[in-house]
Amino acid sequence: MSDTTDELVERARSLDKGSVARLISRFEDRRPHMAEHRAEVLAALDGAGVAPTGTIIGVTGTPGSGKSTLLSRLTVDLLSDDDSRSIAVLAVDPSSQVSGGALLGDRTRMRYLPDERRLFFRSQASESDLGGLGPSTFQVCRLLTRLFDCVMIETVGIGQSEADIRHLADRVYLVLQPLGGDEVQFLKAGIIEVPDAFILNKCDEPSSSASYHQLRASMWLARPFDEEAPPIFRTSALTGEGLDELEADLIARIDTIGGAGLREREPYFFGRWVDDEWGRHGVGVLRERFGGAERFLADHGGYETAQAAFADEVLRQP
């Protein structure tokens, strides 16, 4: 039980399941004193020269569009494409507003590879009934991008919670299914502006061709200022059709992007954290007294210390 941080980090670096899992729990843990533990873990990783170079891929879309099924195939393919590649999947599901509990069911679609350390799967509760990212998804990514080459995040996309994924991921794919009534809603809700690329899944279904043309057409309307229309991949997670192109696109991103951009995203997620913890009051304090998240982070040297400092500041308020 009483493993030291260094021991845990050491084992997590070799992707030992239990150790990675327990470190993730530390990054999910929102109790104030955990910031210190996180700083310790990050310091140990930095000390070992482990940088957050993993690429973050966001996969979003309505429930049932096939995100989990797609991910189960994509991960297996990407692992066999390059036997040094490692992938973590983070699947976020909505929580009940009544009890707070969540049913985390995305594993149902995953292929289990019990002896494969290069694939790690973790579920997360969004703590909102609309889906979107959880309050600690960003935190967990700070860890996982240091341990894995690629972090894939599955989220249910309904409405504005999608802005979060845009801020977190290096590339966002929106998964749609043919001609769902939901899909039309989706496009109307402005979601069409979020993704870098579209995946029209279930193209084994007869209605998929019509949907493809419909989607193409609405793209011009919704994103008139794009220099180039974003790509639309047509896939079937059941038959495997179209996965090659999608995988080539993914591999190109994983091999070139490298997630060095997480630092730039800290201000946004710091702001979101303040909002989660203290609501409008906290956001006000951050803006008015400290000139916003970016300034606050710059003034307090590092994310963890900034969290601790901000907590103190807010609590000191009468």
Partner: peptide, 9 residues
């Protein structure tokens, strides 16, 4: 889930 666990099934 009803009583507040996070449930993996």
């Amino acid at each position: 889930r009803h009583v507040g666990f996070d449930v993996i099934y």
